[in-house]
């Protein structure tokens, strides 16, 4: 039987009278990029938080590889295979680039209960970390303190940490935010290749990137998914244009 890698089933969450997400059911199939778009306040970030376990839904479930992960904590979901990048870079700013990615290696290999040998001298941890840095093009910066990186480099580092986890699915919250034209292009071509490894659930405001990358797009408005389809279908849907795209596309 065909089964999506990641799926939400009727996720509903409200804050008082505000329905942040209403009965959201989306899925993510292998090797695809599924983009979620929608105006500010449409509930995209709330949806991501419920998928990653930062927030408990009022009702509904999240499944990863068919397993219900709704009751798991954030770190257990990460261990089960959710590789997440944050909307606002969430890195250890005082640490060097390589320390940030080695943290990812620790998580991937469950190697945290080791107390003697230096982490940065442990070969398997470092190799995994350096492979990830090479892929995002940050290997030259490995000994730079994270606080001294440019904004774009921090976005790359976020992705590198997620790569070390070799996740079953990537959840990316606005990876292009603040990247500029050139940076967005690079990130777009990188994500394009990445989908073969693991599918990506992509929340993004950069419409050029979304329409260039996505296999499917879901449009959220006021907490509800109003349309799901291929980029072409979405582009031509009347209600989507009215609700969100306007004349942009």
């Amino acid at each position: 039987m065909y089964r999506p890698i990641l799926a939400t089933h009727g996720l509903t969450k409200s804050f008082g009278a505000l329905n942040a997400t209403r009965d959201v059911s989306i899925d993510l199939n292998s090797k695809e990029i599924h983009a979620i778009i929608g105006p500010n306040g449409a509930g995209k970030s709330t949806l991501i938080k419920q998928i990653c376990g930062e927030m408990q839904p009022d009702s509904g479930r999240v499944t990863l590889d068919g397993q219900d992960v709704s009751k798991l904590s954030t770190f257990a979901r990460a261990r089960a295979g959710l590789g997440r990048t944050f909307q606002v870079s969430d890195l250890c700013r005082e640490d060097t680039v390589v320390e940030n990615v080695v943290l990812g290696s620790l998580g991937a290999e469950g190697a945290v209960w080791r107390f003697w040998k230096s982490a940065l001298k442990t070969r398997d941890l470092c190799e995994r970390a350096e492979r990830a840095l090479e892929r995002v093009g940050l290997i030259e910066e490995r000994y730079t303190r994270c606080a001294n990186l440019s904004h774009g480099q921090r976005r790359q580092l976020e992705v590198a940490v997620a790569l070390t986890l070799s996740p079953r699915a990537f959840i990316m919250d606005e990876p292009m935010a603040g990247l500029g034209v050139e940076g967005s292009k690079q990130m777009t071509s990188f994500l394009d290749g990445l989908r073969k490894e693991a599918p990506i659930l992509l929340v993004e405001h950069d419409m050029d990137a979304v329409f260039a990358l996505a296999d499917r797009i879901s449009v959220m408005v006021y907490g509800k998914v109003i349309a799901t389809g291929t980029p072409n279908e979405i582009r031509n849907r009347k209600e989507v244009r009215e609700a969100y795209l306007g004349d942009a596309v």
Partner: peptide, 9 residues
Amino acid sequence: SRVAAVGLN
């Protein structure tokens, strides 16, 4: 949250 995101408690 960074530590949790890499699967550690």
